[in-house]
Nucleic acid binder design. Structure first.
Lengths: 122, 122
DNA sequence: GGCGTACGCAACCATATGGTTGCGTGTTTG
DNA sequence: CAAACACGCAACCATATGGTTGCGTACGCC
């Protein structure tokens, strides 16, 4: 029940918090870790870590697996990678759009189509 | 006076909010826009937009330029691109680390090469 | 000059968010 | 079996955050 993968919203939100990033990183650096283990090396309580792990899990950045009385979490790069690609796409789109606009603006006003307003702005 | 570019913190935080993303997108789609213009097409007040633009500017995602009595904002893809690359790097690192750990764990304690491991991967 | 528009600043609000402590329960292990 | 350990759940807190309204002021236009 943690099939969130295509929604960048939670990923960005999860990554926005510094502490949460540290938690994530801590998990990643151990391959697998429990909230207790992580809390031991961070200046926050175990419960805080638990909450962060909850958010991270919600974003698909970690997955929990119960082993005996422990809850082991593992980091998952996919969502991150996913978000990165999304960003690239958006950036590219903006880039294109801006380039297009700039291009039009710099045209020597040769073809005057559409009853557009008089060229000069301001 | 807004030379924050290498700090992903504000970028992620800025991108985390849906409305703020819409504002950003609105700016990008126009090439240049004022808070008033954007507020006109979003379900929030101009002031709210102003605040969002402030955050976006802080993150380097937009820049303002005063034209007469108007304040025109433009989107800047750089920080986005920047964040994307950062994410990729982190993801790659985790991937490597996880692969290494997994590899070690599954080794029957025999030949332990450091070269190209048997590609499992998703 | 005078009016309307576009800002910026500030006060205020409600809710979300990060964090803490306390407590009851399941799991090991001596 | 009983003591320890590791959790999960819930109550609570303080502050950050998104949003609103009101107001004084700079700029443009008749």
């Amino acid at each position: 029940m943690t099939m969130r993968g295509d929604d960048i919203e939670p990923v960005l939100a999860a990554l926005a918090d510094p502490t949460r990033r540290r938690v994530l990183d801590a998990v990643a650096s151990r391959g697998e870790a429990t909230a207790t283990m992580i809390a031991a090396e961070l200046p926050v309580s175990r419960q805080a870590v638990v909450k962060h792990l909850g958010v991270l899990d919600q974003a698909g950045l970690v997955t929990g697996r119960k082993a005996g009385r422990e809850m082991l979490y593992t980091a998952r790069p996919e969502p991150l990678d996913n978000a990165a690609r999304w960003m690239d796409a958006v950036a590219a789109e903006w880039d294109a759009r801006l380039a297009r606009i700039k291009h039009l603006a710099e045209l020597p006003a040769s073809a005057a189509e559409t009853g557009a307003p008089a060229g000069d702005e301001r």
